[in-house]
Design a protein around this nucleic acid. Structure first.
Lengths: 144, 144
DNA sequence: GAATTGTTTATAAGAATTATAATGTAAGAA
DNA sequence: TTCTTACATTATAATTCTTATAAACAATTC
């Protein structure tokens, strides 16, 4: 299923001016396979063996390209570097404040929040973002 | 009322080992008076005339102190620098994707989201964060 | 096949934040 | 009060993440 989603993403790119390159494919593949929330540097390190000559800038550039096309989302949490997540179904993130672990969390979309915000503020609302913070099971046990 | 909240924050600090200094008071005062969401640099610039010798590091250090005590919250959006917000009542932020304006938005707390997340993930949930993105009225009109 | 457009690489530059060391200031004990 | 200790501030240097630049490369179009 990760493969199907990857294919969808590749197809989405075909409809734009964006060319498919080995590096791009590898970055997408890593994102869809790992299903984690890596930083640009995580991706860079993970692909080092496969692409010894790849530049960090390539990772950043392509993540931005993917973001603009809409197949990747950038997550900025408290920690220094951004994390990237492939846009699949609507889900939220539960984040461990102690170790930084990120777990996906499905929840019916908060549409009513968006509509209420439109009425109250006069904005044209496009999107929202929510994160939940806490201590994961491992870190909970650590603090005994 | 901003003054009352400021007093509360000052009192909260008295109960810790944290000392009150002129710089700290000025930073808090600015946060509570302006009711905006300034960056560290905004604060630094705003207090320049009052404290010509203050270092940027002081602003950063103290914002972190306030954050740890729990009277200030750090907001990390896509843009490069963090923004800081005094923790008052529970409210969310509506952010203009075009001009960056931030508007407060009151909404009954999403407690059920937190409890559901606890059950599903096994986390001990402390907190959550939500932001709503859209175009403010000015930017809506601009794009005609 | 030549020209154009887009891509990668390597490196340098930029910006935000943190660490360090020296100096300053307030609180507590003698 | 004076000495000592602990905390704060300042100035500067160092780090880290990210972006810009220019040259080399590859693919697409005419």
């Amino acid at each position: 299923m990760a493969n199907e989603q990857l294919q969808e993403a590749v197809n989405a790119l075909k409809n734009t001016k964006v060319r498919m390159t080995p590096q791009r494919h590898a970055i997408l593949e890593y994102l869809y396979d790992s299903m984690s929330h890596p930083t640009a540097d995580d991706i860079y390190k993970a692909l080092e063996s496969k692409f010894p000559n790849m530049s960090v800038a390539t990772v950043y550039n392509n993540l931005r390209v993917f973001k603009n096309v809409g197949i990747v989302r950038e997550l900025t949490y408290g920690d220094s570097s951004s994390r990237f997540d492939c846009v699949t179904t609507d889900h939220y993130h539960v984040i461990c404040s102690d170790c930084g672990k990120i777990v996906d969390f499905h929840y019916p979309g908060l549409d009513e929040v968006e509509t209420l915000a439109e009425h109250v503020t006069g904005f044209k609302v496009h999107d929202h973002r929510m994160e939940i913070y806490g201590s994961c099971q491992e870190c909970k046990n650590m603090s005994h």
